[in-house]
Design a protein around this nucleic acid. Structure first.
Lengths: 247, 247
DNA sequence: CGACACTCTTGATCTGGATCAAGGAATAAA
DNA sequence: TTTATTCCTTGATCCAGATCAAGAGTGTCG
């Protein structure tokens, strides 16, 4: 499997390293050097990629699938602190100890780099570091928006905000407008959503049915949400205007 | 006043640019170039340094005092998303619109740089960018720890965690151990703490008196907290071991 | 000095979301 | 087909923290 991926991606055409995650500006030579040290790895849905406290000697970029970062307390409480979609980055240069669990929510393919050669390239290719800096600041902005959600929003607002955020991250990049009716496949289980939003699974479920009864969303099965009027949902999110969670 | 600061800091001896915040590795020449474009500005306690939505053409580093980043919703709800102590950084290269209020909690002195020349130096002095990347990742880690607090901790745990975090950030850097009894001057009002923790002012107040009655802390007036046994406080924070919020 | 404005504490009550508990629906295993 | 198993929904009840309300300091400005 991994071998197949390697063959398939020799030119890195579908790899975020090429496209967005790390080096959109790389020239051919630089891309070659990145290609030389990268390797792919896949994980099955539900699999834990790495545990809190692990020593991690790789950094990676999500190629496909959805993964989460979660921080836990020993009594079982869990808080999601990162939702990783394709092109998102895992790990940080300069630190080896991981302080949260990384879990594959769906089947996940990572494009990984051993820390040492990657950090070397970071020094030698300046715009790679620049790109990483932008990504870190983007994540920081997202985290701060998320803090507003966790600290001050009601359960209903949290659900609405999450839906908007998922729409923005999965639909907008491909150029669709926010105004049209949207069909959304949720990448997360009710439990994962609870950990995302700081709620219990029961409250998540109840808010979904409440929003459905109020005509804000429609449900197809458990994982598909249809948003007939995005402005209606936006009005439920507690954000004045754009919102921008994780945007 | 600003003039006085400029004189006083010509060699940048007390400026974080020199010490920790941006360029611990700068050689003399590089320091000169940084000095050439920096300027100091002071703000009085309570003053708003910049508003959500402002176009900001400077980045800055906190020299002295305490400032906060807060994100608000129009109905008055506020969530603090950043607590800035000396050496912390404000603003981000590559973005001009600020998406939170920056407020001086105490009297604050900033060491500021106009965006253009600063970004230029960022390109020309690679380890400056490297330093900024480390700072961004540190803030991201802090934000994630903070998200765990906001999403999953009880009011009592929140207060305890905050106290530990303030101790770590204000005492530990000067080399004191965490084991000894500690006297702590709170930089924040009850309201600011509420916004920090996602609580109301009343709940903050009640938890302080509860912790005092239980012998976990002692209070001297409203702003001074004495922690007779740090392990006791640590046990109340909900963190297994180190905690590390904002550390 | 009193009047006012803040900030903080404390009490009484309310409520949103947690907890406890019992099914339903879908998929897989036997 | 029956029997688990997993994930989700719904109901009943409870409680931590919010809200409403009333002072208590403390400082400042006339």
């Amino acid at each position: 499997m991994v071998q197949a991926m390697l063959q398939e991606h020799v030119s890195c055409s579908s790899c975020p390293i090429r496209h967005r995650a790390v080096c959109a500006k790389c020239d051919t030579d630089e891309l070659e050097r990145l290609n030389a040290i990268k390797f792919y790895k896949t994980y099955a849905a539900g699999e834990t990629i790495a545990y809190q406290g692990d020593e991690l000697d790789v950094v990676a970029s999500v190629v496909s699938g959805v993964a989460t970062l979660e921080r836990g307390i020993e009594d079982g409480r869990m808080q999601m602190v990162g939702l990783l979609l394709p092109s998102d980055f895992i790990g940080r240069p300069g630190r080896t100890i991981l302080n949260y669990d990384v879990t594959a929510v769906s089947d996940v393919t990572l494009c990984s780099f051993h820390r040492q050669p990657f950090e070397q390239l970071l020094i030698e290719i300046p715009h790679l570091q620049e790109r990483l800096l932008q990504m870190a600041f983007d994540e920081l902005d997202a985290a701060r928006e998320w803090m507003l959600l966790l600290g001050r929003k009601t359960a209903r607002e949290k659900i609405a905000s999450m839906l908007i955020s998922v729409v923005k991250r999965t639909h907008l990049p491909e150029g669709q407008s926010l105004g049209t009716a949207t069909r959304l496949e949720l990448p997360l289980s009710r439990e994962a959503m609870g950990n995302f939003l700081g709620l219990t699974i029961e409250t998540v479920s109840r808010q979904f049915t409440a929003l459905r009864k109020d005509g804000v969303i429609e449900l197809e099965g458990k994982r598909v949400v249809i948003i007939p009027d995005m402005d209606l949902l936006l009005a439920e999110s507690g954000d004045d205007d754009d919102g921008g969670l994780l945007a």
